[in-house]
Every structure is written in C-alpha cells, then in structure tokens.
Amino acid sequence: MTDVLGIATTDVGEVPATKRSDWQSDQEVRWCPGCGDYSILTAVQLLLPELGVRRENTVFISGIGCAARFPYYMDTYGVHTIHGRSPAFATGLAMTRPDLDIWVVGGDGDMLSIGGNHLIHALRRNINLNIMLVNNQIYGLTKGQYSPTSEIGKITKSSPIGATARPFNPVSLALGAEASFVARTHDLDRRHMQEVFRRVFDHDGAALVEVYQNCNVFNDGAFGDITRKDVREDMLIDLRHGEPIRFGKEQQFGVSRRPGGVQIVEVADVGVDALLVHDETTADPSTAFSLSRLAEGPHTPTPIGVFRSCPRDEYGHMVSDQIAEVTDRRGKGDLAALLRSQPTWEV
C-alpha cells in the first residue's frame, strides 16, 4: 500500500497466484438469463488472475444500472454508488490512493446521460481509472426507455413512435474529451474482450473501453448485424497497431484515407500500400476520430480494438507530485506556525 496513509500492509514480496474462483464473490449473479453482462464478468474474472495483481488492491466502482451491479459479484473491494457519479467517486479514491487498481463499470445511461459530465472530465484529467462503458443502447434496469446511444427512430416505451435525438458515439465522444486511451470490444468475443481489457489495465491514465453488450430482454440483437459469428469477419474491423487496416473473410476489404477522413475500400482496387496503417499513438486524434465515424451505427463494418493509446501525464501523479514538491521545499506543515502565518500580537 502507498505511504499516503502510512498503513503497513502486505504489499511486499510476491503476489500470490489466484484463480478465477478467487475473484468470484459469494453473491448470486442476478442478471437476466442470456444477458451479455455474464460474458463480460467472466472475461474479467478470467483475466484478473493473469494480471498478477492483488485482490485487496483491486476496487470496482459503479453507478446505477444493470451493469453497475458488477462490483457485488467480484471478490475485491467494491462500491455501488449512485446514478452517474461513479467517475466522481473513483476520482477522489484514485487521487488519494494511487496504489489501487480502480475499475469503473457503468452503462450508456449511467456514463453518457446522467453522468456524462463526470466521464468527460475524468478523461480530460487523465485520472488513472479503467473505465468499462457497457453499451446496450437501452435503459434496461428501468425496463426499456431509449438511451443516449439509441438510434433515431428507436421504438421504446418512452418513444412509442420513435426516438428523435441523435445518439452519442461513445468512442467519438471520448476522443473529443481528450482521452488518452480509447477502445471498443463486444460481449460475444471473450478473447478480444480480454485482450482489450488487459490493454486498459496496462494504461497509466484514464482508459475507456466501450463494450457492445446485448440486452436480450429490451434491445435484443442491437449489435447482431456486426457481432454474429457468421457475419463478424466481414463486419468487424479489428484495429492492430502498426498494421494496415484490413478485414473481411478473405481480408479483401481495407480502410484508406480520403480527403477529410477515412473510407472503406476493396484491397483489390487500391492495393495494400494504399491502406491506412493503424497508429494508436499519434498525438493528433483526428485519424482515430475518423475511424470512429466509419460506421453510423452497428450495422455496417465497424472498427473494434484500440483506437488510441497515447500516454500523457496522469492527473493523480501530478497532484501528488505538487504536494511532494511543496513539502520538500517548505518542510512538513507545522500547525502552530500556520496559525501564526498572519500578523500577530501579544497581550
């Protein structure tokens, strides 16, 4: 543990090996049968033993919504806070406890609607949080209203003749909010989820991953056009750092630049050399943003993987460095001296 609190714990020596069951709490998982959240939970519980981290140093923070029940199912420290505020709560914890691995889990309503302000500011500050934005394009826990990621025209209980608001694209939003790490994955591919979650964990700073998640009760098949096994190869564009962006059963499609953005091309038409080589680390987020706009919705070929990984100073470190620097320069604060820091007089 950090010296922030001066509490001696066992944070010395080797991290004990763990297995999946060590990360499962004794609470019964209560999502609807068939919910995409189960596979996300499994992916996380299978990944954590591989990361070599301590359970006691791992904290899951959530807001309100179906996905926000996540902490109850993890045998780690966890807080189920209130709607939209998990990034705020996690910010205070991360600033003062840099020794902890903090995961923030929430849905599209929690993170992009009621909590949108906290999310963009956590990303802007680059506070060290692993943020899983579980997007099912619907309000599930309140039984089916349109969400900030629901498409225009969506028929729901609160939009009986169709939603009229343009949806957020969470990856575009995060890039616009100066995020230093932005990725996307989906609930039907555990291997891909784990690969991306590991990258989220490794990133020092705010890392956001959008997880396409199927709500089989209120929005079944929202991502089916692109994530079903039979269409996946032609519809998911797996971004790989340093490689030309290609996809399709025969790798016959690719992405190339066009004036003002990027476009899908047939490799046979343009040649491999014309394809865009993916670079996560470019400081300018314009290309990553263009990639996030390739698909209007999850019905045409859609990029997944890491859009951007461009480390910059982490907020909590900057704050604690200032504290350390001032303390070094002035010496540890002395209360009696503080009380005498204005003009005084003796009686």
Partner: peptide
C-alpha cells in the same frame, strides 16, 4: 471538481480510501 456533485462524490471516494 467539474461541478458540485463531483466535488462531494470525490470527497466521499477519498473518505472511502481513508
């Protein structure tokens, strides 16, 4: 903080951390 709600949320998160 970015707003009053975040200000108290972060304070509560810090309290949780000790």
């Amino acid at each position: 903080a970015e707003d009053e709600i975040a200000a108290v949320g972060a304070a509560l998160g810090a309290s949780y951390g000790g």
